[in-house]
Amino acid sequence: MTASERLRVYVWGIGNPGRRDDGLGIELVRRIEERGLDFLHCEANYQLNIEDAYDIAGADVVVFIDASMEACAPYEFTRIMPSRNISFTTHALDAESVLALCEEINGSSPAAFMLAVRGYEWELGEGLSKEAADGLERATGFLLRVLGESSVEKMEKAETARHSGCRLTEH
């Protein structure tokens, strides 16, 4: 695949590394960035905010990575779409709202996915819980495979499905 054929992929980590497993998204982005993949643009911040709607506009695909209290372990990977239904807002925005805001101010938004990595411990402190660290390893390997895909459609095929008992299916 030539450079010009590559998807421009933005990887967007969200979380606070000072809150144990809340730092999963930041750590995963750090690991991805270390690979030095030239078609990737990596960003990390405590939370998503309105300026991200401007910053993601140059991507073909954006993959948001966040810790989750509810995801099936070790992670879920799902296609997400712009949503104008903000049920509540804080200073931060959720990923779907960032996409909607991007669409309103730029006319379109990139294809987007959420990689939600299951976290377990959220108190103030450093370092991931053992379960989260294990999940991080698997999520990193999974994401590196997905990022190598050549189209949004192929990335969609990597979506994980939630089954009874919250067992994860990897394609």
């Binding site: 309105i50 401007y54 910053d55 709202s97 309103e104």
Partner: peptide
């Protein structure tokens, strides 16, 4: 459903853009 930043972007795009760019 409309009283939020997306609503501002839909109905008052110039203000929403200013907010985004000032924050940036």
């Amino acid at each position: 459903a409309i009283r939020n930043i997306i609503g501002v972007a839909i109905h008052h795009k110039d203000l929403a853009v200013q907010g985004v760019m000032m924050r940036k």
